[in-house]
Amino acid sequence: MSPRNSVLEASLTRQRIVDRGLMLASVDGLEGLTIGRLATELGMSKAGVLGHFGTKEGLQLAVVDAAAELFAREVPQHARGVPPGLTHLHTLCEAWVSYLEREVLPGGCFFTAAAAEFDGRSGPVRDAIAGMDALWRRDLGIHIRRAITAGDLPADTDPDQLVYELVGIVLALNHSLQLHHDKQAPARARRAMQRLLRNR
């Protein structure tokens, strides 16, 4: 096998491990993600799985990155090309609700579950999760400020408060879908978001 093919095969194997790890972690949590289970499910040795990441923490961090990439494809990228302002914000919110409604991951919102799992801890995994959350909130705030500048939202709108309330709606949506299997929850979330943005 040529070096180029060997590198490609290693990269594809690593991606398979991460993809499967993301599916498992979305249901069982990042701590429930074990090298042994991944090895069994993928027909690999434990050493073969671990060799791609070095440590379990390395695997967890790779899964967090993969979750962030998936979220970016499913939510922010759906608003690409949409003019800035309230229309862009509505498009983002709809994509956010749809992401959970369509059960893109079997365990619902990966970052909601991971934040609950790691919020009281310290270390690189907790920092990565907090960093991704902060980045998304910052982006939401940017779009809210653009809507204010465009005159779509009142000048006295508090962007941080609006971000807080939008995040709260999605947390409630994830909770209702995952814990109660409430099929009406996405519609409730949409109404709550529309009322929130309309009342500004």
Rank of each mutant, 00 (worst) to 15 (best):
A114D: 11
E69R: 15
L162Q: 07
P3N: 05
V75P: 04
T87N: 14
V170R: 04
S45F: 02
P3G: 03
Q15I: 01
H90D: 13
P186T: 06
L50Y: 06
G81A: 05
R145Y: 00
L8V: 03
D158G: 12
V49W: 01
G36T: 15
E31C: 08
Q161S: 12
L61H: 07
H78E: 15
G108S: 04
V7K: 15
V75L: 06
V82L: 04
H88C: 03
A115R: 09
M132S: 12
E31Q: 14
T157D: 05
G151R: 05
R190G: 03
L173I: 13
S2N: 12
I148A: 10
L22N: 03
T87S: 15
P76H: 09
D152E: 12
L22P: 00
R191K: 15
D156R: 15
D182L: 00
C109K: 04
D127C: 02
G21S: 01
V82S: 07
G85H: 14
A47E: 13
L38Q: 06
Q77K: 12
L196V: 00
G81Q: 06
L30K: 05
N5E: 14
M132C: 11
T157L: 03
P154R: 02
G141D: 09
I169Y: 00
L162W: 00
R121N: 07
L12R: 15
R121W: 09
A185G: 04
R102D: 15
G120S: 08
H78I: 03
G32A: 09
D160R: 12
H175V: 13
T13Y: 02
A115C: 01
L86F: 14
D158Y: 10
R121F: 09
I17Q: 08
A39K: 08
A116R: 02
L89E: 13
H52S: 04
